[in-house]
Amino acid sequence: MVQSVSGGTGSDQPANSSKAKPRVLPSRRRARRAWLTLGIVVVAIGVLLYKGLGNSLVYFRTASEAVQDRAQLGNRTFRLEGVVVPGSVHATGTGVDFSVESSNVFVQVHDTANPPQLFQPNIPVVLVGHFQGNIFLSNQIMVKHSANYVAAHPDRVATVNGKKL
């Protein structure tokens, strides 16, 4: 990539060197390649804008919003956010059952995918899935980490997340 972007001045190599390899493309081909790259870039920008507008404007609905819009949502797939309720977590054979909460509204979750390693009570999560009745069927758990960084107490280091650190 670096090679391809180096030619700000249009000379990839010193052409006056006697060792000049015939690597320099004729100008028409160079131009075509440049336009082609530019075309790919424009397409990529389009894809990113499409993905961005489709996903990131409303990246998730909080549990309370989802309950409020329950009727509208039907069994559509969307992202649900909430804090994992302590004491509600039960591992199942394939995934985990738990509840999430936001603004005192609780949603029961049945997850069928392996939870990520930071999944734990009291952590905010974003779940991908859909409602079935009043239960949210999730097939992906993403942990929403906060911007806080706190040094682990040396005595607790060995047991943070139940893992040896």
């Binding site: 972007v5 440049a34 530019l38």
Partner: peptide
Amino acid sequence: WDARLTTTALLFVLYLGYLALRRVP
């Protein structure tokens, strides 16, 4: 595809485009 990740990917592609534009004779 959250906003931070998408706009960062866009940033990468935009400046790749800048560099590609420079190669147009």
